[in-house]
């Protein structure tokens, strides 16, 4: 009697094995990325966390590998607290502004753009991401400089007085846009905007049209529909986007160096502490701050029901 099935190759036997034990395949596929995530990604983060509990010997400048809270006490000194507060304020303002600017764009792209227009939208949002970050920041420095196009345009349209009034504002103002917090804020919003638009658009796209119709049908005005249906349903996307803009702003150390009045931000502090100053423990403690803030932020967002629609 001849065999019903032809002789099987090694590949066939492997396929059969995976078919019988689908979990085996899953484990094989997922182990390498999990190792990467666990060891390289989270492992280095934990190493960083540990470093922040070490301290530096004031005389020799050598790191003392003993558990202490001294470094954190240092973090709470006024000049360091100001850095943290400054960074959080900037990150908060940038996130809020990005959300406000991004929402209409994301809404249009999700609800109305079709075919060619949708492609144009993606291209328009992504295109700035393809060019070098440094080039963009320096370009903005030129745009915002006292001799730059903004000043020129303001003078040409006889709104120079308005620009001067804005620059005369306490704290956020300055000599020119490129040396003020306002300028830094504008550049941050420009640089991180795509990271807000894309997750927002993805979440808005998942809100079915009938949901909006149902709301109108039940007597809600457009504003009520926006507040009670669209915004809560888009909230996961808004939160995702705000995580990007918030944490990217908090960690950035280049824009505050190039734009603004050279007051220090968390990223700059970390950069200087682990480089020139050689104070790795304090740098690590600074780096822990954004992590803690993000955890607090996400907890609050969850408690406010931002993830109810997931």
């Amino acid at each position: 009697m001849s065999a019903v099935f032809p002789a099987r190759s090694l590949a066939d036997r492997l396929t059969a094995l995976f078919w019988r034990k689908p979990r085996l395949l899953l484990v094989l596929l997922i182990t390498p990325p999990l190792v990467w995530l666990g060891v390289v990604y989270l492992g280095s983060l934990i190493a960083l966390l540990l470093q922040s509990f070490y301290s530096i010997d004031d005389f020799s400048g050598v790191v003392v590998p003993e558990f202490t809270l001294k470094t954190y006490a240092q973090l709470l000194k006024p000049q360091n607290l100001y850095i943290i507060l400054r960074t959080i304020s900037m990150a908060g303002a940038v996130t809020l502004a990005s959300a406000i600017v991004a929402f209409p764009i994301a809404y249009y792209a999700a609800r109305f753009a079709k075919g060619r227009w949708k492609a144009a939208f993606y291209l328009g949002v992504m295109l700035p991401l393809w060019s070098s970050y440094l080039v963009k920041v320096y370009a903005w420095k030129l745009i915002l400089a006292k001799e730059g196009i903004v000043t020129w345009a303001a003078n040409a349209t006889h709104t120079g007085g308005l620009l001067d009034a804005v620059l005369a504002l306490p704290v956020v103002g300055g000599n020119s846009l490129s040396t003020s917090y306002i300028g830094m804020f504008l550049v941050f919003v420009y640089i991180w905007l795509p990271y807000m638009i894309l997750p927002m658009q993805a979440s808005l796209e998942r809100v079915p049209t009938t949901m909006l119709e149902a709301s109108a049908d039940l007597g809600a005005t457009r504003a009520q529909t926006f507040r009670t249906v669209i915004l809560p349903l888009a909230m996961p996307g808004v939160i995702a986007g705000s995580i990007f803009t918030f944490s990217l702003t908090m960690g950035d150390y280049i824009i505050p160096q190039i734009i603004g009045n050279s007051s220090s931000f968390i990223g700059m502090a970390v950069y200087q502490l682990q480089g020139t100053a050689g104070n790795v423990p304090l740098a690590a403690a600074f780096a822990v701050v954004p992590i803690v803030i993000m955890l607090i932020y996400l907890t609050l967002a969850k408690r406010a029901g931002a993830f109810d629609a997931i």
Binding site: P208, T210, E213, D217, L218, G219, A309
Partner: peptide, 28 residues
């Protein structure tokens, strides 16, 4: 639509997923 005194039961029901049943019913 929101000024017409008619209401619709949608084919896919279009219930608001982020609200509980009572809030859904009380929405109007």
């Amino acid at each position: 639509p929101h000024l017409r005194n008619v209401n619709t039961v949608f084919q896919d029901y279009a219930l608001f997923p982020h609200m509980n049943v009572r809030d859904n019913v009380a929405y109007g």
